[in-house]
Design a protein around this nucleic acid. Structure first.
Length: 276
DNA sequence: ATATCTGCCTGCTCGC
DNA sequence: TGCGAGCAGGCAGATA
């Protein structure tokens, strides 16, 4: 599942391929993929547009076009982007999971592929229409322990629920939430308003650490995420607890537990991350 | 206001 | 072997 490090990897790998390239044509096979505007207006809006600027906000890719409009891509659970030359088999025959194909002026095609069809693409005048409500970027200087503490103040939901809340901090998903809570030694079901200053500072550091390390290793590849060129990321090799229920904790050998928090599989060490 | 639940989707695993 | 049930989960939208 693509989270901040996976989306950051996509943006970094897309830029050298697409910067300065022009979209010459496009086809949409699953209309619901296009969140805004309608498909016809979307196709018209991107026609003959050059990719001019590459950015990321949370789990959203922001692909700025020459027209000043922004093509926004959110991969949700299983979205993928790939670029194929005319010699590639999938260039002529996109598979059943390919929902949008963009033709480029160098003859190659950019494919948007998504098994679960949860992903969405927008074309907007102002990216803030889509990403305006997101919380701070966790790797920016605006995200400080004090700011984080302020965002958690008075919140009685579990800390895991709030780490997954994109309005609290942008880009953390299920993998990095579990890994950050383990690194910080905090039980996922602790109430956010029960955390003391030191714990919040530790969690702040842990969130930044796991995201930064995730980016360095080009993301976590479990069942679905693969990169632009089809290669995997490598951060899954450094996962301490995510999807490791029943296995020994790498720190203390206590059996890692799997519970459900915020309707998501949640993995933690009951010894390193005590509830009380 | 915050907190929680449902629907969107399809591939995979499990049990009979 | 075949098949239905259950599960995985980010986010929008609905409900409490």
């Amino acid at each position: 599942m693509p989270e901040l490090p996976e989306v950051e990897t996509y943006v970094r790998e897309l830029e050298p391929e697409l910067l300065g390239r022009t979209i010459t044509q496009a086809r949409v096979f699953w209309p619901r993929t296009i969140a805004q505007p309608g498909v016809a207006a979307f196709l018209e809006g991107i026609h003959q547009q050059r990719f001019a600027h590459f950015d990321r906000r949370g789990k959203y890719m922001l692909l700025g076009l020459q027209s000043q409009q922004t093509l926004i891509v959110h991969l949700r659970m299983t979205g993928e982007l790939h670029i194929y030359a005319p010699t590639h088999a999938l260039y002529r025959e996109p598979d059943k999971h390919t929902h949008v194909v963009f033709g480029l002026d160098d003859g190659r095609h950019l494919h948007y592929r998504d098994q679960r069809k949860f992903g969405r693409i927008w074309l907007v005048d102002d990216a803030e229409e889509v990403v305006g409500a997101l919380g701070p970027e966790p790797l920016d200087s605006a995200f400080t322990p004090a700011q984080f503490a302020q965002a958690l103040r008075g919140r009685r939901a579990s800390i895991k629920t709030l780490l997954l809340n994109q309005a609290v901090v942008a880009g953390v998903g299920n993998i990095y939430a579990d890994e950050a809570l383990f690194r910080a030694g905090i039980h996922p079901q602790r109430g956010a308003d029960q955390l003391n200053r030191d714990e919040i500072a530790k969690l702040h550091e842990a969130v930044q650490f796991v995201l930064q390390r995730g980016i360095e290793l080009k993301g976590s590849s479990l069942q679905n995420y693969i990169r632009l060129d089809g290669m995997t990321g490598n951060f899954q090799e450094e996962h301490q607890v995510f999807r490791k229920g029943g296995q020994p904790c790498p720190r203390c050998k206590t059996t890692i537990e799997r519970i459900v928090v915020a309707q998501r599989g949640t993995h933690f060490c009951p010894h390193c991350q005590p509830l009380s």
